[in-house]
Structure formats: structure tokens, C-alpha cells
Design a protein around this nucleic acid. Structure first.
Lengths: 290, 290
DNA sequence: ACAATTATGAAAAATTTATCACAGAGTGCT
DNA sequence: AGCACTCTGTGATAAATTTTTCATAATTGT
């Protein structure tokens, strides 16, 4: 047992730097489901963090405990102390900051956006969109606007790993008409368009449609005019306490889509990822995971 | 393990009448310091309630458990569910889709990431980071890597509106040494580095630091090696059911930061936004809001 | 008040759980 | 490229905790 006035969670975070890879992996696993996971048997904890049993024993010693049971005893004490005090209901997200701190206000707004977006989304439409984007026979065009081009790029980057035959187009660039030259029947356009909707984007969507391409639209819940011609429309709520709109919810939809498509195309994705790994290994662009 | 939707505390109270004297004595003792006392060794619990060891074993069996460890496991599960809070416990987000639909699974993971990130963030560090990035006397460099360059760009785009005197650098590009030439004392580097940590990014950070610049790091909770030299380190949890990591939580932090800085610099931001509007109006790049 | 029944606790047996010592793998350094 | 280093996991050993057994005490019904 060690000093008080400092939760074990704090202590772990503090010592995080002094820990080795496996130990840190373990420490984070403990914090992830704190404190419940630390109150179970050592072996269970080790398994949950994908580390070996002695790693746990070593880490708790580094934290200053005599052994795992000692650590558990302290955890239980802490739990007991919390339970006795006024049960502060989790109204705040960043626990250490007041409710009015921007982190809490912003996070609350984003959670609300997510809840609303998910409540109104049509899973069938989402699945359709995924199927279209996953279909390797169709050339895939990903289109972003002024603000949304970063989102478009994020999707593009991941789709590049999953499948061939795709292009990133920026509607704000004046080169996009050139891309349309090659687009045709059965191709797919994923278009991002949120407030302030862009005229260029609408034009591009119309022309793509005229050429017989499918259109998947990511927009906010006021809906870009593109939605009238889109085959599938995915809307997100984007309201936050800021002068700008939030892209977080849209990002969540994009990542869900990537995850879904990766599953649909898993065989080819797996191979392509492996190849990518090999290339990175050869170029030694990245450090080994530490 | 038994049915859900009923806390163990409830179940004990319910069965209280069916228990014998010693067992009731024990039950009340458990409830007195719930749930901490039930998570310790059986013998300790027995001693605390002044009953014998087998009494405990018998009572948990009456409650429907196979044995004491089984009882403890259920207690821990309950504890885990409480800690996650009512919002995270949401089972389905996309109401129209089944729980196993990727939208629900993914969203749940992201909410969990957000909760964890916010639980462990240091608001003081966050405020410091905001102050550094907001300070217009310092030149601001925003650095992204292979995956993170979209996030970096997103921040860059917004900061461009808020303040002058900033540069977007890509650590994967081989032009970054040129940017460092101009960097010096008192400048600020916002660096994004998540798994697979990039050697280039680390080098860049080191050199920036050597030149007397401040370093603000956005990373995942395994922490990029850059964190050792960073002045402020903001970590996000990024685990999702996918072959890739999630950028959504990091996006949330970035947007919170933008919102915070916009408030700090509100006078200048307001003017700059107005100017931007005027320019857009002139170029007629965007449709009027409909 | 006595017998039958049930509850309780002490102690031993069985099982689970934690600790220790050692060897292999991976890293970084010269 | 080779050596020394640290870190990590496997298997063996020791410790602890839980379960079971059984004898005794308390309780209830007649």
C-alpha cells in the first residue's frame, strides 16, 4: 500500500513513461476498464491485455506494490472510498475539468450529434452505399470540397489500400472536368458536401449522374442540394459550440464505412495490406512498434 | 453468472428473507460497503461480517452462483457497466439496425474511446496547448505524417482563418528540412504522430526542439516517442473493430481546440472570418445558404 | 423436554492463483 | 555484422484461496 490523495489511475498514468512496451499495454488495458479489470485474477487481467502473467507482477512492483494482491487491496480501498463519498454522477466527460470547460461542452455536443445521426440513419442505405463503394468493377471517384476535402482524402487513403481503381477529385480545383472525361456508366462518385454547399460540387454531381454514374452523398442534416440526384444520401448532425461545424460525426460514418467495406473485401484487402507492410519494411519508413 | 437488468445489490435485498441469521448478517455486511467488500478474498469478507468461511460460500450459492469466484466476476461486470456510464451503455445506436451491425459496433467503440480519452485528459495541458497555438507572436507549424496529414490539414485550414503566421508541413515529404531553416526560438510545432510512428516525425520534432521551439503533440494512447520531448502531449484512444485505428477521437480534440482558440482570439478571428466571407462573395465560389 | 432438523464453524482437501527462475527473442550499440 | 543488453513469455514451484467434509450447536415441532 502506498500514499493516499492520488488515485491509482493517476499513479499509473504518471509512471507510464517508466514502463516498457508490454507493461504500458497492460497499464492502458487497466485504465480502459478501470477499476473493474484490476480486481479480477492476475491471469485474467494478463489475458485481457495480451501480455504474460509475470508482466503483470512486474508492473505492479514498479508501481510500488509488494505484489498483485497488495495492488488489489489498494484498488478496493479506493473503490470503497469513492462509494462512500457523494456519488458524483458522470455529467462531465473530462472529469478533472468543470462542466463549463470547452472540452466538456464540446464533447457533449458531439455525443449528441452522434446519437442523433445514428437515430436517423437508414442502415439499408448505409449498406447500399458500402456495396457500391466496395464494388471493384466500378471506378470509384471520391470528391471533396473546400472544407470536406480532408475527409474525402481520409476516405481515399483507406480505400486505396482496400481496392484499386479509384481517384480523388477536388471539386474546388479546376481540373475536375478532366476526370469526368473518363467517368461513365456504372462508376461511383462519393461526394462530400456540407454547409456552405458548393456550386462546383453540385455541377460535378449532375454531370456524373448524366453520364450514368451512381452518386453516394455525405452531407449534413440540412442536406446539400446534391441529395436530390444522389442514389444514396448519408447525413450527419454537425452542431457544436463553435463558429464552425463539426466533422467528427461524418468522420465516424466514414470510418464505419471503411470498416464495413474492409470486411466485404477482406480477402483482397488482407493481401493488399500485407503488400503495403512489405513495402514499408523495405523502405524502413517507420519505426518498429515500441 | 445470472440474469442482467438487476443489480446484485437488488438481488441480495430480494433474497434477504430467505436467508438464515448468519447469512443475513453477512448480506448486510456486503451491502454496507458495496461492492468493494465483495471483491476481496472470501475469508476477509467472512471475518468482516463475523461469520464463518463456509457461510459465505453457501450464501452465494443461494444467490444462484456456482461459487464465490463466479459471484465476484458478476460484481466486476456490474462495476464495469456502471463505470461506463449511462451513455456508453447504450446498446444500439442505429436504432433501426441490429446490435451487431457495424454501425452500432463501431459507434459503441468510438463512444468508448471518447469516454476514455476525456477521462484521462489533463485539462491544464489542453489549455496550455491552446494558449501556445493561439499565440500569434509564435510562428505555428502544423506537422502531419502519412495517415495523420489529413488531420493536420484540417487543423491547418481552420487555424488559417483564426490567425496568420502558420505553415503546414508534411513529415513524409522530403521538403520539411527547408521549413526548419526558418523555425526558431519561441515558435510552436503541432505534431501529429499515431501508430505506426514515423521516424521522420521524430527527427523533425527533435530538431524543432533543438532550435528552441515548443512542441505540442497529438498521439494515441500508446504514445509516439515524440512525447518524450514534447512540451504538451494530448493522447486519444483509437481502438475500433477495424484493421485500422480511428481518427474520430483525435478529430474531436482538434475541433475542441479550434473552438477554444477561436474564443481566445475572438476579436481577430471575427474580423478575419468576415473578410473571408467577403472574398467568397466576390468570387461567388459558393451558393448562398439555402 | 426430547428428538429431528437445520444452521454453523473448524479443519482438511482441492483447486485456483501468484511468484520465481530461466531461456529465448528482439533492440540497440560498437 | 556481432555482441551485450533489456524485455518478454514459458514452465515449475510455492502460496493463497475456495470448496468440501464432518462434528457441534442452535432451532423447531411434537
Amino acid at each position: 500500500m502506498v500514499d493516499a490523495n492520488l488515485t491509482i489511475s493517476d499513479r499509473i498514468q504518471e509512471k507510464l513513461d517508466g514502463l516498457t512496451r508490454a507493461e504500458r499495454q497492460l497499464a492502458l488495458s487497466i485504465l480502459e476498464n478501470y477499476p473493474a479489470s484490476g480486481l479480477g485474477p492476475l491471469a485474467t487481467l494478463a489475458k485481457g491485455a495480451n501480455v504474460s502473467v509475470p508482466t503483470v507482477a512486474r508492473m505492479v512492483q514498479k508501481l510500488g506494490y509488494k505484489g498483485y494482491p497488495d495492488f488489489q487491496a489498494d484498488l478496493r480501498d479506493e473503490l470503497g472510498a469513492i462509494a462512500k463519498g457523494p456519488i458524483a454522477r458522470h455529467e462531465t466527460w473530462a472529469g478533472a475539468a468543470p462542466t463549463e470547460h470547452i472540452l466538456n461542452r464540446f464533447t457533449e455536443a458531439v455525443i449528441d450529434n452522434i446519437r442523433n445521426t445514428m437515430a436517423h440513419i437508414d442502415p439499408v442505405a448505409f449498406d447500399q452505399a458500402c456495396a457500391l463503394v466496395a464494388d471493384q468493377r466500378r471506378h470509384l471517384y471520391i470528391v471533396g470540397g473546400r472544407i470536406t476535402h480532408t475527409l474525402a482524402e481520409y476516405l481515399f487513403m483507406h480505400m486505396q489500400v482496400i481496392r484499386p481503381n479509384l481517384t480523388h477529385v477536388q471539386s474546388t480545383s479546376n481540373t475536375w472536368p478532366h476526370y469526368l472525361l473518363n467517368a461513365g456508366d456504372g462508376d461511383v462518385f462519393v461526394i462530400f458536401d456540407v454547409r456552405r454547399y458548393e456550386n462546383n460540387t453540385l455541377k460535378l454531381a449532375e454531370m456524373a449522374r448524366a453520364r450514368g454514374a451512381k452518386v453516394v452523398l455525405f452531407t449534413d442534416h440540412w442536406r446539400s442540394p446534391v441529395h436530390r440526384i444522389a442514389d444514396v444520401c448519408l447525413t450527419s448532425q454537425i452542431i457544436v459550440p463553435s463558429a464552425w461545424d463539426s466533422a467528427t460525426t461524418t468522420m465516424l460514418l466514414i470510418e464505419s464505412m471503411i470498416s464495413a467495406i474492409q470486411t466485404l473485401n477482406w480477402d483482397s484487402t488482407k493481401n493488399r495490406m500485407q503488400e503495403l507492410e512489405d513495402i514499408f519494411d523495405k523502405t524502413k519508413l517507420f519505426r518498429k512498434f515500441t
